[in-house]
Nucleic acid binder design. Structure first.
Lengths: 243, 243
DNA sequence: GCAGCATATATGCTACATGCATGGAAGAGA
DNA sequence: TCTCTTCCATGCATGTAGCATATATGCTGC
């Protein structure tokens, strides 16, 4: 098989990249994983990890490679999000980006944060969050931080996708450690949806959903009645994770 | 602004295309718009309309251009679907395709079917329709027709997207003429979802959704009690259509 | 014109999910 | 042992979907 399309290579065509919007839950709020750019354009600004797609590399493989190379992360939840194809989204020239989103429990990031020089910034969702709109990220001083390229749009689209998906797909578990309480899971849903949920309805719905399996263990170290620990139940066709 | 990314142009990079999965409702069943290829690869086979993305053209603009140039259709519902990025999806070389899907009432296709040499084939959805799986299209002899490239996968993903979206987004109207009865709309939903729906619940849900506005007119020419004709109510922020 | 017919439309009933309130259960600490 | 706080179970009101039934309506054949 040839590597190129005959007769078309002499014409300029768009470059193709992948960008990864990696979200995690930290202190009860959604945070995005960002890294600081060292080269122009947007030198010094924060951006999503990304890379150009190689000519012999599948797009989803490129996304997994970015997570491995730039963040030291493998075997995390990773799905394609949306392709951003505006002509002027990259000042260097024509670059189309196939954005992906990844979900990781905060505990897994501890080890790689400093080794890979990563930043974790809180996501502030404007209200209302319009279709395809951007979100803000804020640093520890709670000041808004400007992101490179259209990466604020990518994060906004990610939050929107999560909100639409968390009610019918088991994605909340991806933000939690293997064992968790129902309140942990509730807080994940609340952080994603940006609103409070009824505890009792949530409990009944999740317990009757068949997605949870009791571990028989309990949360230890709490001053009051300990909550039961659950585990996500793999439903036959894998755990919804991609390599 | 430059057209290219400095330092990278000497390296081969993937080509970028758009493909359009245009669906319509014909004889109570979903049909896909296809055209017959005249050149290799897959010469003689049916394929989705598509094109390479030009370097000064936004991806969504390329999708609209394909519909205009190859099908004579403008101002139809058109949204990005998914980007297909396998290395071997095109035998000519590395071509990544940003698939889109379009929805058009069958009446609008009458005029362009022959002028643009288009084919309308019925979509047969396997059961169950697994994540990202392909569907079959059948000709008038009810025999399965093999599509070029991974276009059967694209159609499968389209049906799946529609099924997830039709319950909370007003996409069913895109497959109907401006005025329609509740039974028309019900049949659209049934064709998309692949199962029967309760008439009364559907009626109540739609009437109380605020999406419909009565025209005061009735379906004429039926032998029995005529049904009221409704129109889709534009809800302020446009009609959900893209150019 | 009138009875018959097939569908449209309205209404009532049941089952179930959700929001909310109440009360017992469980473990830690005084 | 008592108290505190949260977990967890249960009961009730409400809203919606599925289902059945009754009425409305316009056409057809006589």
């Amino acid at each position: 098989m040839e590597e190129t399309v005959e007769g078309l290579d002499r014409f300029p065509h768009p470059h193709l990249a992948v960008d990864i919007a990696l979200l995690t839950l930290h202190a009860g709020a959604l945070h995005a994983l960002l890294l600081r750019r060292t080269e122009a354009p947007f030198a010094g600004a924060l951006s999503l990890p990304g890379s150009f797609v190689r000519v012999r590399e599948a797009v989803d493989a490129a996304a997994a490679r970015v997570l491995a190379e730039k963040c030291g992360l493998r075997d995390v939840f990773l799905e394609q999000l949306f392709t951003f194809g505006d002509v002027k989204r990259d000042p260097r020239g024509r670059v189309v980006s196939v954005a992906h989103y990844a979900l990781v429990p905060a505990a897994r990031l501890q080890a790689v944060m400093t080794a890979y020089d990563l930043q974790l910034l809180r996501i502030v969702v404007p209200w209302p969050l319009h279709q395809g709109g951007a979100v803000q990220v804020v640093g520890e001083d709670q000041k808004a931080v400007r992101l490179a390229f259209d990466h604020a749009d990518i994060l906004g689209t990610t939050v929107q996708r999560l909100r639409g998906k968390i009610d019918y797909a088991p994605v909340g578990f991806e933000l939690l450690p293997p064992q968790f309480t129902l309140l942990d899971l509730l807080e994940v849903h609340q952080a994603v949806l940006g609103r409070e949920l009824n505890k009792d309805s949530f409990r009944r719905r999740l317990l009757s959903s068949g997605l949870l399996s009791a571990t028989g263990r309990q949360r230890s170290g709490v001053a009051y009645r300990p909550a039961a620990l659950f585990r996500f139940r793999a439903t036959g066709r894998g755990k919804g994770k991609k390599a």
